[in-house]
């Protein structure tokens, strides 16, 4: 990655020096070495603080919404960031000419907590190579399976390389087909059990709105979830169902599966299971092959004359 990091800094420096962009969004050093944070390079020298490693977790697309207000923005984009940008572009929230996208292929981001649990001590560095991840700790260098080290969102990712990039650093990795089998497990529960499962998840919800605030699809100027006529501020179970139903439904057909909502949720609510249920039905009922990749018109903004009636085919456990 260090070679790519050097090229990234060089490009960012050039863009800032030549005035092509007002700010370059990437990652910079965090308080802890294995937790880099989003970083905004506003002058050419700041570009040298940009870093790119296996711990860069946060999604960057959402920042563009604020940052483009004052001028063109450059940013580094992994596959998930790229899809988020496509979402903002499809929603006409930003214009393509306002963005300079430096694409990189991402093989997965290491979760420092998960990696620490696997390695038994703090992880200083990591290398993601295919199905294994090498974790480097102060005392050892050992390999572990991906599932023991990476963020959940990365384990399900099939979009390692952004589709929109003005320049791509490194090799492109072809996209795959998202596996939505984790939805089946919930569908197979009896309905009362399924209700108890979700009630338990939603009861934990603090309503901090982190899921909405980090989401590139939740880019509305004003949100119905802030309006008491649509969602009361109380946190009784009925309102929690209303909140989670509305959040998921409002991104149905628009969610880019970047997994930021689930990563941000402090209560560990499996929000991806909600988003992916809509994806699965969009795929199965309306033949939208990859609903998370923005197209010309989102699937709920159009119809076919011979669409099936999903409510007949629905029903328990199917």
């Amino acid at each position: 990655m260090s070679d790519i990091q050097a090229r990234l800094r060089e490009i960012a420096r050039r863009l800032l020096t030549e005035g092509h962009v007002r700010v370059f969004i990437g990652f910079g050093p965090g308080f802890e070495a294995n937790r880099p944070v989003p970083f905004f390079a506003a002058d050419p020298d700041a570009a040298d603080r940009l870093l790119l490693d296996e711990f860069c977790a946060a999604g960057l697309a959402r920042y563009v919404l604020e940052e483009v207000r004052e001028g063109p923005v450059g940013l580094v984009a992994r596959g998930c960031d790229g899809l988020g940008l496509e979402r903002l572009l499809a929603d006409h929230r930003v214009a393509r000419e306002q963005l300079y996208v430096v694409g990189v292929s991402c093989r997965g981001v290491v979760d420092p907590d998960r990696a620490c649990a696997a390695a038994g001590e703090e992880v200083r560095a990591a290398r993601v190579n295919g199905e294994t991840v090498t974790l480097i700790t102060p005392t050892a260098e050992r390999s572990f399976p991906r599932s023991a080290c990476l963020l959940d969102k990365c384990l399900r990712c099939q979009d390692p390389t952004p589709r929109i990039a003005d320049v791509l650093l490194g090799e492109a990795i072809p996209p795959g087909e998202r596996d939505l089998a984790h939805v089946d497990a919930v569908e197979r529960m009896p309905s009362d059990e399924r209700y108890r499962f979700w009630a338990r998840q939603f009861e934990r919800c603090l309503r901090c709105l982190a899921c909405r605030q980090v989401c590139p699809a939740c880019n509305c100027v004003s949100c119905s979830l802030d309006r008491p006529e649509w969602l009361e501020r109380g946190t009784g179970l009925a309102e929690q169902f209303m909140f989670h139903f509305t959040r998921a439904y409002h991104v149905a057909g628009r969610c880019v599966a970047c997994g930021e909502c689930e990563r941000a949720c402090p209560a560990g609510i499996p929000l991806g299971l909600l988003n992916d249920k809509f994806m699965k039905d969009l795929r199965d009922l309306f033949g939208v092959a990859a609903p998370h990749r923005p197209g010309d018109v989102e699937p709920l903004g159009k119809f076919c004359p011979d669409d099936p009636e999903g409510w007949h085919e629905g029903g328990e456990g199917t």
């Binding site: 946060a58 920042y63 603090l206 901090c208 605030q213 402090p266």
Partner: peptide, 24 residues
């Protein structure tokens, strides 16, 4: 600059006490 303006930090914080009053 990197803040997303969610309420996570305040809601998980044991010392943050701000509240709103509302009618249903």
């Amino acid at each position: 600059r990197r803040c997303h303006s969610c309420g996570l930090c305040t809601f998980v914080c044991p010392t943050c006490y701000c509240f709103a009053v509302f009618d249903s």
